[in-house]
């Protein structure tokens, strides 16, 4: 917390200490952009966009960057990952990155940022450069959180497993539409009361409709001493047939 650090700075003798309580959310809400670090541009799990012309891009660009020129950006929403949590980092000439940041934010992207890359400076600093044509498609794969499980692994477990159990924490109404045949069902609200009925020796992998409740349930289970992971994915069931996608 900023206040903790500010307090420590005052204790260390600093005389002019202020706290910007509204923080990054307030900053962005006021229409300002944020900048990605060089480390993040090089190594982060991001979608990097070079807003310059095709010619400039092909002559040399920051590794991993896709080329979508400033003129084309407006029409390129469908080329971006459907998952709005994908961090999108843009760079270009002049104020283009700032303008692009606003356009992308307008699409509902939650994690846009600007790489304040002046390409000439990037090159001069001895940073790596790639040349050639832009890749066909923007591909972005979400990295799993600490206790998340992949869709593939979850699907396997949902078919029955000796040492793992799929747990469905949706409401009774939702489950009436259908559920995984071999999953246990305990609505999230009843989990505390019914936890003791779960097998202690098995890892409990939890799902709901999106992942929000699954994460809550999984945390509860781990707090109670269970081994547990959860699925972040959209789950739609019709009878015993369930469709799972990101």
């Amino acid at each position: 917390m900023s206040t903790t650090n500010a307090g420590l700075a005052f204790k260390a003798g600093h005389k002019n200490v202020k706290v910007y309580l509204d923080g990054v959310p307030g900053w962005k809400k006021a229409g300002n952009h944020v900048e990605a670090s060089e480390n993040f541009i090089k190594k982060g799990n991001i979608v990097l966009i070079d807003l310059r012309s095709k010619k400039d891009y092909e002559a040399g660009h920051v590794p991993r960057a896709h080329n979508i020129s400033m003129e084309d950006l407006e029409y390129a929403e469908d080329d971006f990952p459907a998952n709005k949590a994908a961090p999108i980092v843009v760079y270009g000439n002049g104020d283009d990155a700032k303008k692009a940041f606003k356009i992308i934010k307008g699409w509902g992207c939650k994690k846009g940022s600007i790489a304040s890359v002046d390409f000439a400076a990037w090159k001069k600093a001895g940073n790596p450069i790639e040349t050639g044509v832009t890749p066909d498609e923007i591909v972005w794969v979400r990295k799993l959180g600490k206790y998340e499980i992949t869709i593939a692994e979850f699907m396997k477990i949902s078919e029955g497993s000796a040492d793992k159990l799929a747990l469905d924490v949706r409401t009774n109404d939702e489950v009436d539409e259908g559920k995984f045949a071999k999953a246990r069902h305990i609505p999230l609200d009843d989990l505390q009361g019914q936890m003791s009925s779960l097998p202690k020796g098995k890892e409990i992998v939890v799902h709901c409709t999106t992942g929000a409740r699954a994460e809550m349930a999984s945390t509860e289970l781990r707090n109670a001493g269970f081994k547990s992971r959860y699925l972040v994915a959209t789950v739609e069931c019709d009878g015993p047939e369930c469709e799972v996608y990101e």
Binding site: M1, G13, N16, V19, G23
Partner: peptide, 25 residues
């Protein structure tokens, strides 16, 4: 910042305006 020498990362001149922030109010 909580580490023993955390405050050493701040400027030596203690009159400089410092502004701290984080992820919301």
């Amino acid at each position: 910042m909580k580490k023993k020498n955390g405050a050493a990362l701040l400027p030596k001149n203690k009159d400089i305006q410092l502004v701290f922030y984080c992820g919301g109010p």
